[in-house]
């Protein structure tokens, strides 16, 4: 009985606090994406004529809440699309790209080429999946205006 009460309390906590957290995070991502809009990001590897380049990267470890983890577990029993994890990877990826852009901005670069994204699982002692690390890296190039 006590176990069930704890379980339900954790579900509620995850549902409400997790939902608010996620909404806040997305709002903050959107705001910062707007601010860093002038930094161009390319997945292609050829750099336009420029003065110099340097490696930039951004990473983040994000976790889903207790409620979503439970939902994912239920969906996992029958198979299908797990929306709870889709927003998790989206959050992680956008955040990592933002941090990379931020580093590029700090170096005075306006373009990043050959951007790579890498996702890996982060483990806990209790072995439940639900947290991932996303790394974004690329080469920030400076002085693209020298040879228009």
């Amino acid at each position: 009985m006590v176990d069930l009460a704890i379980f339900l309390a954790l579900l509620c906590l995850g549902f409400f606090v997790g939902r608010i957290n996620e909404r806040r995070h997305f709002a903050s991502i959107q705001r910062r994406e707007e601010d860093l809009r002038d930094i161009r990001v390319f997945a292609t590897r050829d750099a336009p004529p420029c003065r110099s380049g340097a490696l930039v990267s951004g990473n983040v470890v994000v976790s889903v809440d207790y409620f979503k983890r439970f939902v994912a577990f239920l969906v996992g029993l029958f198979g299908g699309q797990i929306g709870a994890y889709e927003t998790l990877v989206e959050r992680g990826r956008r955040e990592a790209v933002l941090r990379m852009k931020h580093e590029a901005q700090g170096q005075g670069a306006s373009t990043i080429v050959n951007v790579k994204l890498m996702t890996s699982r982060v483990f806990y002692s209790d072995r439940r999946v639900g947290s991932i690390e996303v790394l974004a890296y690329g080469t920030a190039i400076q002085g693209t205006d020298i040879n228009p």
């Binding site: 906590l13 606090v17 997790g18 957290n21 470890v61 994000v62 976790s63 809440d65 207790y66 979503k68």
Partner: peptide, 23 residues
């Protein structure tokens, strides 16, 4: 700390730092 944060979701700052340092 990560175990607690794990309940409500969001960034696990300690882990982000750990992985940044290691990299």
């Amino acid at each position: 700390m990560a175990g607690l944060k794990n309940l409500v979701g969001g960034e696990l700052t300690g882990y982000t730092e750990l992985l940044t340092e290691s990299r």
